[in-house]
Amino acid sequence: MSHEVLMQLYVFVLAGFVGYQVISRVPALLHTPLMSATNAISGISLVGSLVAAGADYGPVSTVLGVVAVTAATINVVGGFMITDRMLKMFKLDRKDRP
């Protein structure tokens, strides 16, 4: 295993660990927004798709890349927008609670 792959594994394992810790603190109240939020974040595949679509690797690469860009953008734009739409609805009732 090359040094580079090993470093990638480090990053993966540590990020997974941080993710688990951070996410275990999310209350059940927000589990649906959490899922749409992680979904938007995993739209980061967009970054990989952009290179495939724009690097002039040939027609097949461009077609695959453009479809991937479209799919990932749907997730990024839609994911962040719908998460915000949901979170906007969560309001406190300060009047009748001690």
């Binding site: 990053v11 993966f12 990020a15 993710g19 979904n39």
Partner: peptide
């Protein structure tokens, strides 16, 4: 990193 966060969640 983003994939690992999503996977963990």
């Amino acid at each position: 990193i983003a994939g690992a966060l999503d996977g963990a969640s």
